[in-house]
Computed example of a mutant assay.
Amino acid sequence: MRNTRQTTKQREEEDVQNPTMQHILHTIQQLQEEVRRSAEEAREEQERLREEVKMSMEEALKAHKELHKINHELQLQTIQQLQEEAKRRSEKAREKQDLLKVYRELQRITEEFRTSKPKNMVQQGNHGSLQMHPQDEPQPFTQNIIDEQVPPSFMVPKITPFSGTGDPELHLMAFRVQMLISGGSDAVRCKMFAGTFTGIALRWFNNIPDHSIPSFHVLSKKFIEKFAVNKVEFPTIADLVDIRQGEGESLKSYLSRFCGVSIKIFSHENLFVDAFVKGLQASSFFESLIRDKPDSMVDVQIRATSYIKEEELMRLERKRHQPPKIRKNITKKSLRRYEPY
């Protein structure tokens, strides 16, 4: 037993003293050192990539905040422009104040002349034509609206007349926006709104029973009910869910088509995001939206920018490497048979 141990020890000492074995041991040590260095470099590279991802996410968040800031500034600028426009219109209205005073005075004199006539008296014109009694004129408004005088400095809203063939809701919305600038009481709103009627709409207004409209709410409700058949049907959230990205359709085209429809729909932003993701074809952008769901369509557009650029570059690269098509222009002249002289 002792002899066996001594023999093994002697062999190990001989192996250590052997140059070939020393070279092998040295090589093993070098390989171990290389492995250790590679592991450290891999860890450093992983840390660096983690930092880059973190910085990219911070930059994307910063860009998102900047976009919200720009939208807020644009809204403020639009409000300032509307205020300046209202101010300019008010100045023009003040310039016409004298003319309006003359008109109101003439209107007062006309009313006094009408009320001074007997109830059953018929006015006769210069050519003997019969005129309508004030009592015979249609009066759809109640007496409190009739008695309300339009202020002399009131700025009459500029709006396209409604003839009875357009969308009543769009006409009502346009009138309300103009009245936000002009102001005025409920009775003034009734009179100004009736002044926008022409054609069929004016005939309908004159046929409303006398003293049956006590407020602008009632007038607008009757107006919408009468011309509801002309309402333009806007898309709904169900129509938005049916939008799909076509086979081979670019992300830019699909995003533009989707946003063109969603802007006409009034709904929650999360429903827009879900419908957009549902209609996407399987792609790296689709996977990124599944991993990290965006908060709004603005966030979707920001994140889609880099993918759209990548798609455009790939398309240009494929087009550049695509072999040119050889067109064979075969004409009658080329097929003509030449005969020898």
Rank of each mutant, 00 (worst) to 15 (best):
K252R: 15
G246P: 00
S220K: 00
D242H: 07
S253N: 14
E225R: 12
F227R: 02
R244V: 03
V232G: 02
K222V: 01
E247A: 12
E247L: 10
K252D: 14
K221F: 01
S250H: 04
F223I: 12
L251E: 10
K231Q: 11
K222S: 11
I224R: 08
K222H: 09
E225V: 09
N230Y: 04
T236H: 01
D242T: 14
P235K: 08
F223W: 02
L251K: 04
S250R: 13
K221Q: 13
K226D: 00
G246N: 13
E233R: 12
K222N: 05
G246M: 13
N230K: 08
K231F: 00
F223Y: 12
A228W: 03
I243T: 07
R244W: 04
Y254H: 12
N230E: 05
D242K: 14
K252C: 12
I237T: 11
S250F: 03
N230A: 08
E233Q: 15
D239I: 00
E225F: 10
Q245H: 09
K222G: 08
A228H: 13
K221R: 07
F223A: 09
D239V: 00
V232N: 11
D239S: 01
I243L: 15
V229G: 01
F234V: 05
Y254K: 13
V232C: 06
S220W: 00
V232S: 13
K226I: 08
V241H: 02
I237C: 06
N230L: 06
E233F: 05
Y254S: 05
A238C: 08
V241M: 10
K221D: 12
F223M: 09
P235M: 06
F227K: 02
V241D: 07
L251I: 13
